[in-house]
Lab assay of single mutants.
Amino acid sequence: MEVVDPQQLGMFTEGELMSVGMDTFIHRIDSTEVIYQPRRKRAKLIGKYLMGDLLGEGSYGKVKEVLDSETLCRRAVKILKKKKLRRIPNGEANVKKEIQLLRRLRHKNVIQLVDVLYNEEKQKMYMVMEYCVCGMQEMLDSVPEKRFPVCQAHGYFCQLIDGLEYLHSQGIVHKDIKPGNLLLTTGGTLKISDLGVAEALHPFAADDTCRTSQGSPAFQPPEIANGLDTFSGFKVDIWSAGVTLYNITTGLYPFEGDNIYKLFENIGKGSYAIPGDCGPPLSDLLKGMLEYEPAKRFSIRQIRQHSWFRKKHPPAEAPVPIPPSPDTKDRWRSMTVVPYLEDLHGADEDEDLFDIEDDIIYTQDFTVPGQVPEEEASHNGQRRGLPKAVCMNGTEAAQLSTKSRAEGRAPNPARKACSASSKIRRLSACKQQ
């Protein structure tokens, strides 16, 4: 084909351009004929944790799935940006308080904090938690009735009371019990989460009196709706648990309003109706937990002794299953770290194939690490110290990083047969305790 000078094309009309061969290198194709290559998922490591896909996002930050490269346990990490926390009232204080509380709590029905990582340079905090497959609110939203069968609701409620009793025994008032803060594992274990607005009572406090509340409006008791200066913290949790039980068994809320002012007005009056299909035992329990006067409201001991709580409820309806993943529609909620794991395991070791967030990740503290002497050669063979940054567990980050890069360049065919977990650990520049 004859090559045409581009400067001469402006002298031709459209018809003349076609005659000189423009149609031979300008093609129009339908979008259905285009085959897009999927974007390669680059592996990203935060300390010893391999990052997966997004699980959810809230006002405080994002939650992603991660894999512990040492234990191969599935975890969830809450990623918090200090810049964003400053824009939220009491944001930083709530996060630090939640970390302090979770560090000393150990119960099967309370979410466990596994690790805390802090990135000084990017001003990011990573709260590594045990993995929960789904939230209770997500399960309720997945069915038209917006409720659980009585047998399933009873099982979840009993676990909620177990976890709540443990928190109260530790002198902690949750203040925000609701389905949105109750998570579930694949085995059906309920976990109380989000202790950001919780309050730890003084060890020598005479009672459970509280003065502040930041919980969700629909789950607040009349004493808070009416603006009382002080109130019983434990009875606030009992009320919120009662509203939660009402919601998961009926699909409704005892109090509603077009806006928060109308909602608080209705809560302050204390008038509500219980659907007739709840039955006398459940209705009596709800009335005891939603008692207007805090002094007359049920205690956890009274809830445990109630006939509806103690009764064994046979399954009359099919239980609400864990819904498919909202993004991938995966009904099994498979591990989202698998594509990243395959990338590390299947590809040659190259620095361009993975990302390490930083050479140094500070753990379990908000301060910069200490310094240790770096050896410097002298005339008599002895070495003197220069400062060298280290990880919180004493690992020399720069030395590990250099060693990792040197190993990656060394030709050794046997290394390709290593397991995925050992490869992740070798790529991680800074081991965590």
Rank of each mutant, 00 (worst) to 15 (best):
K108G: 05
S401K: 12
L195S: 05
V150S: 02
H306I: 04
E145L: 08
Y49D: 01
K81S: 05
K41L: 09
S193C: 05
N412C: 07
S213M: 07
R383E: 14
Q399Y: 11
Y292W: 03
V110Y: 03
T367S: 13
E145F: 05
P280I: 10
P179T: 03
P222N: 15
V66C: 12
T186L: 13
P321W: 14
D359S: 07
T32G: 12
R426I: 08
R331L: 08
F255D: 02
I274Y: 08
W239D: 00
Y36V: 04
N247W: 03
I172M: 02
E317A: 13
K431F: 14
Y292C: 02
I177G: 00
T32V: 11
Q371C: 10
N247E: 10
P222W: 03
I356E: 15
H306G: 02
K287T: 09
A417S: 09
T402A: 11
L167Y: 02
R405M: 14
A377K: 15
N109L: 03
A420V: 13
L285G: 00
M139V: 05
G408I: 13
E92W: 06
Y261H: 04
G385P: 09
R331A: 00
K287E: 15
P222S: 07
Y272A: 10
R310Y: 13
R415C: 09
L344W: 13
Y156A: 01
A377Y: 12
Q159V: 01
Y246H: 00
E291L: 04
R42W: 15
A377E: 00
R415Y: 12
R75V: 09
F204H: 15
L427S: 13
C278R: 13
I224M: 07
L427C: 03
Q100F: 05
C210L: 02
N412P: 14
E165T: 01
L427R: 14
E342L: 09
E256V: 04
K262H: 13
C210F: 06
A389F: 10
R310G: 04
R383F: 08
R384E: 13
S169G: 10
L245R: 00
K269R: 08
S334P: 11
V20G: 11
K423G: 14
T24C: 08
T250V: 09
K97Q: 03
R301L: 15
K423E: 15
S378M: 07
M11K: 10
F366I: 06
P281N: 15
R147G: 06
S240T: 06
S334I: 05
Y362C: 10
F234S: 07
I267G: 03
S69H: 01
F157V: 00
F231L: 04
T230Q: 11
M139P: 01
A347Y: 10
R331C: 11
H154A: 12
P339N: 02
M125Y: 10
S142E: 13
K388A: 08
G171W: 13
G270I: 04
L344C: 07
L80G: 02
R383V: 09
T249G: 01
A198W: 08
P324S: 12
D327Y: 10
L72A: 04
M18Y: 11
D350G: 09
N94T: 09
P89I: 11
G279S: 09
K329R: 02
E138V: 02
A347V: 09
I322H: 04
E357V: 10
Q37I: 15
E351R: 09
V77P: 02
K146N: 08
S299L: 03
S421K: 12
N380F: 06
G227W: 09
R384M: 10
K97V: 06
L201F: 04
P323S: 10
H345Y: 07
